[in-house]
């Protein structure tokens, strides 16, 4: 486990979800920095350090919503996982859709994990806590 704080890129356009996810992540015991972008275009700019993201820290983990403005989360997933420089970064998809088609397609495009956003606040919070525990405490993340 790295000593330095873990950098998480949260790609989410819903302010309520951003707030909830950030709060739940902050409750976890692993030191972390959460960087938020609100659409797929900014996500790709962040990852390729373009424009205002010139000094962005490469994330250790990406939390990716699927339905995003400008560039869809599905496209972001594809682009990241096809990039030699980025594809090692684990992507946890968080989506309200649990249709088999979305799920299979995400895994086929090498999403590391697919999670359905629960309908209730309590369950959503719990889900993010589990993500924190599993991905930041149990799993060994790539380190370059």
């Amino acid at each position: 486990m790295p000593q330095a704080p873990i950098d998480i890129l949260l790609v989410e356009d819903n302010p309520g979800d951003v707030f909830l996810i950030s709060e739940a992540l902050a409750m976890g015991r692993v030191p972390k920095r959460v960087h938020v972008v609100e659409d797929g275009e900014d996500a790709l700019r962040y990852l390729s350090k373009q424009g205002k993201f010139r000094d962005a820290r490469p994330p250790d983990l990406i939390l990716l919503d699927l339905n995003l403005p400008k560039i869809d989360g599905r496209q972001v997933l594809e682009i990241v996982k096809e990039s030699r420089d980025l594809r090692h970064i684990p992507i946890v998809v968080l989506s309200t859709s649990t249709s088999e088609r979305d799920v299979v397609s995400a895994y086929e495009h090498h999403a590391n994990c697919y999670l359905g956003k629960p309908a209730t606040l309590e369950e959503f919070f719990e889900l993010v806590c589990q993500v924190e525990e599993y991905w930041l405490q149990c799993v060994a993340l790539p380190a370059l």
Binding site: T98, E100, V103, V104, Y107, C113, Y114, L115, G116, L127, Q130, Y134
Partner: peptide, 8 residues
């Protein structure tokens, strides 16, 4: 927790 493919 995770949603996995079921009908591959």
């Amino acid at each position: 927790m995770a949603v996995l493919p079921t009908t591959l």
